Deep mutational scan, measured.
Amino acid sequence: HHHHHGSGALAALHAEGPLAGLPVTRSDARVLIFNEWEERKKSDPWLRLDMSDKAIFRRYPHLR
Rank of each mutant, 00 (worst) to 15 (best):
E36Q: 06
E38R: 15
P45C: 06
P18V: 07
L19A: 04
R48C: 09
L10W: 06
D53H: 06
I56W: 01
K41Y: 08
S43Y: 15
G21T: 03
G8F: 10
L19Y: 14
A55K: 05
R59C: 05
V24W: 04
A55G: 05
L47A: 15
H2N: 10
P45Y: 06
L49Y: 06
G21F: 05
G6H: 13
L22T: 03
A12V: 14
H4P: 11
H62N: 01
R40G: 13
K41Q: 09
H4K: 10
H1R: 08
W37A: 01
S7W: 12
T25F: 04
R59E: 05
Y60L: 01
R40N: 12
F34K: 07
N35S: 11
I33C: 03
S27M: 15
V24A: 04
W37P: 00
H5S: 11
V24F: 05
A29H: 00
K41N: 09
G8A: 11
R26H: 09
A29Q: 00
E36L: 07
W37L: 02
L32F: 05
I33D: 01
K54L: 12
R58H: 12
H5P: 13
S7E: 11
R26L: 15
D53T: 08
Y60H: 01
G21L: 04
F57C: 06
L63Y: 00
G17H: 03
D50N: 07
H1Q: 11
D44E: 13
L49Q: 02
H4N: 09
R40V: 05
L19T: 03
H5G: 10
L32H: 03
D53Q: 06
L47K: 06
H1S: 11
H5D: 11
D53I: 11
S7M: 14
D44M: 09
L47T: 13
S43Q: 14
E38C: 14
D44P: 04
H2S: 09
A9D: 12
I56D: 00
A9N: 14
A29T: 00
G21N: 06
S7K: 13
S52F: 01
S43C: 12
A20F: 11
K42L: 10
P23G: 00
R48W: 07
Y60I: 00
E36C: 05
I56E: 00
Y60W: 14
R59A: 08
Y60V: 00
V31Y: 08
P18W: 04
E39R: 10
E39F: 10
A9G: 13
P23Q: 02
S43A: 12
K54E: 15
L19E: 03
A12K: 14
Y60P: 00
F34L: 08
L32G: 01
A55H: 11
E36Y: 04
H62V: 00
D28Y: 03
N35M: 15
P61E: 04
E38W: 15
L19N: 08
W46D: 13
S27E: 14
S52H: 02
A12T: 12
L63R: 00
L63W: 00
K41A: 10
A12C: 13
R48F: 07
A9S: 15
G8K: 08
A9M: 12
S52A: 03
A11R: 03
E16S: 13
L49I: 06
R26D: 06
F34I: 07
G8L: 11
L10C: 10
M51I: 15
Y60C: 01
E39Y: 08
S7P: 13
G8N: 12
S7C: 13
P18A: 08
H14S: 02
A12W: 10
R40D: 07
H62G: 07
T25C: 08
K41I: 13
S43F: 12
G6V: 15
D50E: 07
A55L: 10
A29G: 03
H5V: 13
L13A: 04
L63E: 00
A29I: 00
G17W: 03
N35E: 10
T25P: 00
A20V: 12
W46Y: 15
A29Y: 01
I33V: 06
G21I: 02
L13I: 13
W37V: 02
T25G: 08
V24M: 14
G6W: 15
G8S: 11
L47Y: 15
H3G: 10
H4C: 13
D53L: 15
M51K: 02
E39C: 09
S52Q: 02
A20I: 10
E38Y: 15
E38T: 14
N35T: 11
M51G: 02
G6D: 11
R64A: 11
E38F: 15
P61R: 02
G6K: 12
R40I: 06
G8D: 10
L10F: 10
T25K: 05
P61D: 02
E39I: 12
H3S: 10
R64L: 12
R48P: 13
H5Y: 15
E36H: 05
Y60Q: 00
E38A: 15
S52V: 01
R64D: 08
L63Q: 00
L19F: 14
V24R: 11
A55Q: 08
F57Y: 12
A12N: 15
W46I: 07
G6L: 15
L32M: 07
F57P: 00
R26I: 15
V31F: 08
P23E: 00
E39T: 10
P61G: 02
H14P: 03
H1E: 12
H2C: 11
L49G: 09
L22D: 01
A12R: 13
